[in-house]
Design a protein around this nucleic acid. Structure first.
Lengths: 211, 211
DNA sequence: TATGCACCTGCATATTTATGCGGTTAAAAG
DNA sequence: CTTTTAACCGCATAAATATGCAGGTGCATA
């Protein structure tokens, strides 16, 4: 069973050669090649691809928007973004819009075919330099792992309630304890977290602890 | 100039074959092979590797801890984690501890050598299935891009102050306006954010908007 | 010119929160 | 067996917050 691939690429030469490459390889079928995202939903519905190869910069609807449209309507279709420039913004935007692979255009044909196979099988092939950017971002924005705030189990429960926007009264009824007890625990939480207001505690909880 | 590789792997057979593979390939030198993380700093300092191949599960100090030790002391050394199981926890822990590559142990020798070259050149080679996990996590925890809450500039300022844990009074003096004005803006913020308490607003701000 | 919008100020009041002090109980740790 | 610890309950008060209502200014654009 061949993997059905659709190509979105505005450069005629590149689009053609991709088409040839994919169609000329065992196990792959290029079943559509488009030079922009016009009628994208119609086209996708018609050719029913397994994998979409999407150029990131195209006239009209950009590849990023195209990816979103496809992902929103056909979440089972895998999308590989292709780009010449390693622009962080667009990379992250693409990822959040449902792309599961990200390749630079200088990727070798062999690698490209492997990548198509990889996404088809549920993986997320990425050019190493792009993966690097993702990792850095990832590392940067996951500074968590609580820094020994030795909160009690109960205290964590209460903190979580507060994070959910509950008032003392709501927490009390939610945990079936009295409001005075809630106050008591909150006090201890503040002390351990070195804060002295609900919102401060919530902020600390969101970026640092329990999350 | 060869890429100098150190290997940490408790399985004797695997360690030896990795050593042979790397040493037998042009452009690579295996300059150390260790079966655990004992004296890790001493060993690293002695052999001065460019790239470390680190098994994730080893007796004594785990590969994750080992990676952290190396990264903390020699941030320029690239680390590739190797594992048999795709355990999310450990993957993310490794990433946060400074690993820049992540390979399953069934990776082919060719790929492994490529990966070593990739990290050496600043990339982050990852097995596609692992990259997939990272992407999902990434997508999950970056749901941002504000959802048109059309907050005024001023309102955003005030919200940011609240996020920083300030009280109305502090916000007022910080922005040189009266506390009643702060109240007024807060009211509007609540309305636009569909909340009705400071901490709720803060939570919404932290995951969804301005951040 | 008028209307809307962003911004600002004021006052009143009910509710919520922060913090002070006091206590009990059951289970784990010394 | 005593001490500690987590969890629980209570009361009191000052401060902060949430919301109600009623204004004012300056600037852009309809």
């Amino acid at each position: 069973m061949n993997i059905r691939v659709a190509i979105f690429e505005d450069n005629n030469l590149l689009r053609e050669s991709l088409f040839q490459l994919i169609n000329g390889t065992d196990g792959f079928s290029a079943i559509g090649a488009f030079h922009d995202c016009r009628d994208i939903l119609f086209n996708i519905k018609r050719v029913e691809p397994d994998v979409v190869l999407m150029d990131i910069q195209m006239p009209g609807i950009t590849g990023i928007e195209g990816a979103k449209i496809i992902h929103d309507n056909f979440p089972e279709i895998k999308i590989i973004m292709q780009t010449v420039v390693e622009d962080e913004e667009r990379i992250f935007a693409s990822i959040c819009n449902g792309a599961s692979g990200y390749l630079l255009k200088n990727t070798s044909p062999v690698r490209l075919l492997e990548a198509i196979k990889d996404v088809y099988e549920g993986g997320a092939p990425m050019t190493p330099s792009i993966a690097q950017k993702v990792l850095l971002k990832f590392r940067h924005q996951s500074p968590q792992i609580n820094t020994d705030d030795n909160l009690t189990h109960r205290e964590k429960e209460i903190l979580e309630c507060l994070v959910q926007g509950m008032s003392y009264k709501m927490v009390a009824s939610s945990l079936a304890i009295s409001i005075d007890t809630v106050r008591h625990h909150v006090r201890n939480i503040y002390e351990k977290l070195h804060v002295n207001s609900k919102s401060e505690a919530v902020v600390k909880a969101l970026k640092g602890k329990i999350v």
